[in-house]
Design a protein around this nucleic acid. Structure first.
Lengths: 217, 217
DNA sequence: GTCTATAATTTGATAGAC
DNA sequence: GTCTATCAAATTATAGAC
């Protein structure tokens, strides 16, 4: 029982999550989970009743630990930024860098991202929860911000702006293996993530017609 | 045997592909495939020998039918565009719109995209093929273009530019269900895809420091 | 080339001792 | 709360008739 865990139940949640994150729900058997946690198979059904319940627990655990920052959080920290064009650009810059850091900081266990990402590829009953509690608030916080600074923009346009950031996170979460195949094992360094965050922030700020903050020039 | 198909073998490839694209390799049983194609289970092993071989066939079929346009193709059609800043911007605009159209035109069977996308989430032995024959050429055609017009750019920067387009395609391929949950069933119209393509093309062109073509102003 | 029948294994889940 | 033992169903794959 290593893994910084307090009891068998949490151990199973983490071990199962690692496996679900790597292989997907259908790619993991309850016996694989039991072996990984070094407990007996029946412990899973004693603690969770079913494979599906255990999946939901792992999924919820990952979701609750990894709430990335969004526009609302960044604005709440410094509401005055909304008042000037340069401040609005700074909100975008901060949100991009914070979001990227929340997902790709080295300490974050990869499975906590991947078990969420996998819900997109293979939706289960957990997708509606994930959408309601993570995607929807994030997308709405972005759309609200864009409609505040560009009241004349159509809904579709605000959505397109919002999606720029989320597509970026999704891509670098999912495409790690092909990226390393194309660009080498050591391509995904913290420096590279900073370059992509910087590139995306500049692109978003310029597209929406705001001035670049000094450190993005 | 509908599905515009000439024999049992191709029927199985398409039916299996639809299921693999929707549920993933582990989420599909050979019996599901046989029932979907209305053939007996043993036909699968007669024609393909194993579930894995059938998957490779469906995967290859999808890959060969859906080669999206890339920078190299667009440049080859009008090499003179490379010579001016406005032409270079036009190359980006064209590549973005063509790529989006190749992936999201209504006639394209969704499974042909999804079976490829799923290789990112759950890599099998087919990932190296997909990377070598699709991702790598596309990424290299983009990087080559960016390094031609911006010879001083670092490798990381050129990669970051290249990734902007591919992340966009990945996002709208994978996130259809949560998008529809958040924005309504009818959110992903051809018009919305055009808005996102336009937004992305503008963002890319401005970030790289090129002038906007007239129809993107 | 397609069928029926079945082998061999793996799966999720349960029963009952301790 | 954990164990052993086992069930019932589903899985991939094969054998052999036609």
């Amino acid at each position: 029982m290593d893994k910084n865990v307090v009891n068998t139940r949490e151990l199973l949640v983490v071990c199962a999550g690692e496996l679900f994150g790597e292989h997907g729900y259908d790619g993991v058997s309850t016996r694989m989970i039991a072996e990984s946690a070094e407990v007996k198979l029946s412990a899973i059904h004693y603690h969770f009743g079913s494979k599906e319940n255990l999946y939901i627990e792992s999924f919820t655990y990952a979701h609750e630990r990894g709430k990335p920052a969004n526009f609302t959080d960044v604005i709440a920290e410094n509401p005055a930024l909304t008042e000037t064009a340069l401040g609005q650009a700074e909100i975008i810059r901060k949100t991009v860098f914070r979001t990227m850091n929340d997902y790709f900081r080295p300490e974050r266990p990869e499975w906590e991202t991947m078990i969420l990402i996998r819900e997109l590829a293979s939706p289960t009953s957990a997708l509606s929860t994930l959408t309601e509690k993570l995607f929807k608030p994030n997308a709405e916080s972005a759309v609200d911000f864009y409609k505040m600074i560009r009241p004349d923009a159509a809904d579709d346009k605000a959505s397109a702006w919002s999606d720029l950031l989320h597509s970026h996170v999704l891509f670098y979460s999912m495409a790690k293996k092909p990226i390393e195949l194309v660009r080498g094992e050591n391509a995904l360094t913290p420096e590279f993530y900073r370059t992509t965050a910087r590139t995306l922030a500049r692109a978003m700020i310029l597209e929406i017609g705001l001035p670049l903050p000094d450190d993005l020039k």
